[in-house]
């Protein structure tokens, strides 16, 4: 279970397991925690990430060519757990989970110390088996709501989520360069009114200003592609880590 209450706005960075190096994700995650993250999303790489834009596709591809599999991701979760008791949520596509075995997956994830799951290609309608296993293993199920979700689905998703909901801010894939505008505000505002559970907002967060805009209504913001880009464009690993820390530190500052 993940505790979400309070006025404090959550900063949730996303990092891909196995990126930039087989064991390199741990350094990035530590940098994220040290920069003031409240929760970490760890991406499980997949060969065909259909909800992801170029940055996360790239990190996923690099991770796979580094030979990363589910067991490596579970080791990463354990390593992060040794470093901090921060909530950890795994995000990834369904087929690697299915191949690993749904029950075995939920059990292992829980044993290694992760707290929740986000599976973007598994809407709640198709998630019966996984959500049963998740509940049995005390894992939090997080489903996505999109700007195109019907009122009926919003209500059902709110109910299906264990602790909090993930609001996709734009109709698009992760890392979309879209600018948030009034329609984003009114969408998040209406979610604020309709949802019984707290919610984080993500997809397209690239700067402190964009994060602050979402946080007016959301309980937290998720940032992924922009971190990978910041890291990738730096001239070496060390300055990459610094860039990631600085971006997260700036966002932390505007959220507080």
């Amino acid at each position: 279970m993940i505790a979400m209450r309070g006025r404090h706005k959550l900063l949730v960075p996303f990092f891909t397991s196995g990126y930039p190096k087989a064991k390199g994700a741990l350094d990035l995650i530590r940098a994220g925690i040290d920069a003031g993250a409240d929760m970490i999303e760890i991406g499980m790489p997949f060969s065909d990430p259909m909800a992801d834009g170029p940055e996360i596709q790239l990190s996923s591809g690099v991770a796979l060519s580094n030979g990363i599999n589910m067991t490596d991701t579970l080791r990463l979760v354990e390593a992060v757990r040794r470093y901090s008791d921060i909530p950890l949520v795994l995000m990834g596509y369904f087929n690697p989970i299915f191949a690993f075995g749904i029950n075995r997956f939920a059990k292992s994830v829980s044993t290694c110390g992760a707290d929740g799951l986000i599976i973007p290609d598994l809407p709640f309608d198709e998630a019966d088996e996984l959500s049963r296993s998740a509940v049995q293993n005390n894992l939090s199920c997080v489903y996505l709501i999109a700007p195109t979700s019907s009122a009926e689905r919003v209500e059902k998703i709110d109910r299906a989520c264990t602790d909090f909901v993930y609001a996709v801010t734009v109709t698009g894939v992760t890392g979309a360069g879209t600018r948030f505008d009034r329609s984003t505000d009114s969408y998040l505002k209406s979610l604020r009114q309709r949802l019984k559970k707290p919610f984080v907002a993500g997809f397209g967060v690239s700067s402190p200003a964009s994060a602050a805009r979402l946080a007016r209504y959301a309980d937290g913001v998720v940032i992924g592609s922009a971190l990978i880009r910041a890291f990738r464009l730096a001239k070496n690993q060390r300055s990459g880590l610094k860039e990631v820390s600085r971006l997260l530190g700036d966002i932390r500052h505007t959220l507080d």
């Binding site: 259909m50 909800a51 369904f94 973007p120 290609d121 598994l122 809407p123 309608d125 198709e126 489903y143 996505l144 709501i145 999109a146 700007p147 195109t148 979700s149 019907s150 689905r153 998703i157 996709v168 109709t171 698009g172």
Partner: peptide, 12 residues
């Protein structure tokens, strides 16, 4: 079969 897709296209 089924519908294993992102929420964004479920309405469509």
């Amino acid at each position: 079969g089924g519908r294993y897709v992102p929420e964004t296209v479920m309405f469509a």
